[in-house]
Write a protein that binds this DNA or RNA. Structure first.
Lengths: 109, 109
DNA sequence: ATTAACTATCGTATTATTACGATAGGTATT
DNA sequence: AATACCTATCGTAATAATACGATAGTTAAT
């Protein structure tokens, strides 16, 4: 995304932006929905479910892992992915409180 | 962000991704925080608050307007921006139900 | 040992994003 | 009318993101 001067923003703002990136692509939304719905971890089944190349899915999984919202356990030759509950709750709270800062009082425009 | 095959995903998935983009950059998080906190609309004060060029702030505002989460009322020579309550609530519900689809039961990996 | 199956990574083409200076266009003030 | 002020847009450079084929590396099965 171009340059993004992260140093001029607070850690909280940068973290929220990063957590939002987890949901900022429909493929990642789909992956997170699949992982959230199935109690059992889906592994490479994700590739079958999504009309994307294996390399592309793997790339999205890598991004989600970087953010921390999912985790993978290597179980060769497969890898088992699942939601990282801690980060999931962190994201829930972060967005929750972000939305709560707006109290709909009087309109202005 | 490259190509993004939106046509292979559901409308809901694409909408969530779009709403997430509103928060997927720290500058936009900062803008939304300012607009949410102040009951009165901040206008070009945003440019003073953020250490970014006026053109850059305007570009972020345009993106937030495209998503619909903010709205601007032209009041020349100023423009008054504020949260669009409808879309704000839409986003709250969308993320809320997204997070609720995950019920922490048994771990798998 | 070969083969098959599953993933991650590399390389690369294409497109999107970010940032900013410069400019244009609007209104209010002088 | 000229000026000052505010904001949007244009043009552009730099960088990030998306997607995929090809390849490499792993383990299980033959």
């Amino acid at each position: 995304m171009g340059v993004t001067k992260t140093e001029i923003f607070t850690d909280e703002q940068n973290r929220i932006a990063d957590l939002a990136k987890a949901f900022a692509h429909p493929a990642r939304v789909a992956i997170l929905q699949l992982l959230a719905q199935r109690k059992a971890c889906v592994c490479g089944d994700l590739v079958d479910e999504l009309p994307l190349a294996q390399a592309t899915v793997s790339q999205h999984l890598k991004e989600l892992k970087r953010i921390g919202i999912i985790q993978g356990e290597i179980n060769p030759p497969r890898v088992c992915y699942c939601i990282n509950e801690t980060v999931w709750e962190e994201a829930r709270r972060a967005f929750g409180s972000a939305f709560d800062t707006y109290v709909a009082t009087t309109r202005c425009c």
